[in-house]
Design a protein around this nucleic acid. Structure first.
Lengths: 355, 355
DNA sequence: ACTCAAAAAGCAAACGTTTGCGTAAATTTT
DNA sequence: AAAATTTACGCAAACGTTTGCTTTTTGAGT
């Protein structure tokens, strides 16, 4: 910043006042006379004075920067979260700085270092897929930098979390498939070392159990990155089974899209032959044909909530709360991909299959 | 940051050296003995010293923070740009702080103020739709803070730009529609006060002219925010014309999706009855049926380029360049929505229309 | 042994704020 | 009219680095 900035000193010199008086006046400190305060503000405007927050941060030993670590910015879910975070941060006078871990542990560790040297006031993070051990986050505890995890969280770390109830959501999706008449429901699952995907699998299993449908391991296909391509691949595998599924619950919308396209390519009908449900409610789920039944994971809301929680902790408004976990309500959004002819009982006759 | 940080002073005390020696050692300054330097580094590691960049920034009078202003983070295009910016910034040791103008001028002005108080080293921005006058950016000129605009840029401001050739891209799309046999091509245009959308309209007109197709104002429908809904609305209007179009060039993919769905709802075939092309190559364009012909605007590349240009300017590696404009190459991506039976000449016989 | 240059390290100011404490003037109280 | 308050402001240190200049130490050359 090599330009010529107007500083508090300049104002002081101009007005024959001390810098401390200027500083106080600009903060509307009552110990400064009204008249003086007014004059200071006037001159400040006139000269285009803008406070230097770097100096202020150093002196106050705190910034109003919120560090956000996301796996990737260009994944819809995360861009919505960031958007929510920025919205609240802006309103509350905080700045947001963003880093992508690219799901790499090494990079995540490096970023935590950067965040420390930058003296961020607080951190919002979604763990990298590679991350099993969160020790690189513990330093923030001793530095008293509050930490809020979202979506992919760690259980062996004392920190606040904002999550959805993946188990419950998965249960409801699966239940919905059962109620619409599916008897053999497959699940395209995410990486099982990540708790959210493990929970989704568990929710799926629990629903089967509750409705007395036997769990068949062949009906679960584990993906790694839950991409569109993996959705197609897993679906192809499922369609090669002797006994193919009549419903597929996919761990996210990308795989669900892949599944839908593969099923269509195989000349099977959706939802009549196979019903498909996804997870996340990405915009594309309304565009695909048939439109996709899915879980709205409220990404934007998640971001806003995480930001609010973090700022409350930064401002020490709940000193006695060590950590807090908020579960965001999700919605099951039923669209065409599961809208079968209603069959409360014995829907078998409706199920036709064609080669 | 109320925690107990290890500072350079602590290291100095521990080693009976002066702070300046420590500082130099940590920068591997050759005026410090090798032995000493090694010892300092060792102790720093041991005590977990991390530099305080706020202090450093204040002293050096510069930060390594890049400020990014986008209309909205959750728009695919911008999230890709941000992703590209972050990638380069991270590699080059810069941090990225993000603000959403929400297409509001007022907010954009406020953000420029914040960026100044935060002493950002440089700025990457996409103008808000509301912004006509860029005077709030001129302050950065005198502060010598480099500025790179992308996509929506201002012509009455001396600043670097990274853009695509909207005119050319629009020309090529339109030309493509003509070559595939369209005779009456409509255009769903964006807000004409924004130069990129004006250029797209011009490119469309130029292609018509070149191929001796008369320009019909009724065939142009101006949208404001180019949303999915606007795409449907404009298309409905077009379909009510006495002489409906046989091709539609939409100023972005969202409106193209809206158009496709409206056309399908009207029981017309794509591309046989009406061919549709979009602009941006959003992921959804491969998912929609038929898949969408569109222009790949290389958002990720744009972000990377903007970041590289900015950093070069920040580091003063081209002192004698006042401003630079880079035009990113775009690609026409032909998909099903325009794949008509090839008709180099007189394709009229192929065009059928049904009510 | 003596000078001199090079190498290694230290001093102290500066970056632009904030803030505890002190003080002078203005105002109120007795 | 003196004492006690209150009001309005100034002094100076501090935040953790960086850096121009000075000082000390070392070792080589004569």
């Amino acid at each position: 910043m090599p330009g010529i900035r107007v500083t508090i000193k300049d104002l002081a010199k101009r007005m024959n006042l001390s810098v401390s008086t200027i500083s106080r006046a600009l903060h509307n400190n009552p110990s400064i006379g009204e008249e003086t305060t007014r004059e200071v503000w006037k001159l400040a405007k006139q000269l285009g004075y803008l406070p230097n927050s770097v100096a202020s941060n150093l002196r106050r030993r705190k910034t109003n920067m919120i560090g956000v670590i996301v796996p990737r910015i260009d994944i819809t879910f995360h861009s919505y979260v960031i958007s929510g975070v920025e919205e609240i941060a802006y309103k509350m006078g905080y700045n947001v700085t963003i880093y992508q871990s690219k799901d790499s542990l090494e990079r995540e560790v490096a970023i935590t270092g950067i965040l420390q040297t930058n003296m961020v006031a607080g951190i919002i993070a979604c763990l990298a897929l590679e991350t099993q051990n969160c020790s690189h986050f513990t330093r923030f505890n001793s530095l008293k930098v509050p930490l809020v995890f979202y979506d992919r969280v760690s259980n062996d770390l004392e920190a606040s979390k904002v999550i959805i109830d993946d188990f419950d959501a998965a249960f409801r999706v699966t239940e919905h498939l059962i109620i619409t008449g599916c008897k053999k429901i497959a699940h395209i699952a995410g990486c099982q070392t990540t708790s959210i995907f493990a929970s989704r699998l568990e929710g799926y299993k629990a629903a089967l159990l509750q409705y007395n449908i036997p769990f068949d391991p062949n009906m679960v296909c584990c993906a790694t990155d839950l991409s569109y391509e993996e959705g197609s691949r897993c679906t192809r595998k499922l369609l090669k089974l002797a006994d193919i599924p009549d419903g597929i619950f996919c761990a996210n919308d990308y795989t669900a899209i892949g599944a839908i396209q593969m099923i269509k390519k195989s000349n099977l009908r959706i939802p009549e032959d196979i019903a498909v449900a996804g997870f996340s409610n990405y915009p594309v789920s309304t565009i695909i044909e048939p439109s996709l039944t899915t879980i709205d994971d409220r990404a934007f809301e998640m971001g806003k909530t995480a930001a609010r929680m973090l700022i409350r902790q930064i401002e020490d408004r709940d000193v006695n709360i060590a950590s807090e976990t908020v579960v965001i309500k999700t919605d099951l959004i039923v669209r065409d991909s599961t809208k079968r002819a209603v069959a409360t009982e014995a829907p078998k006759t409706l199920v036709r299959r064609e080669k």
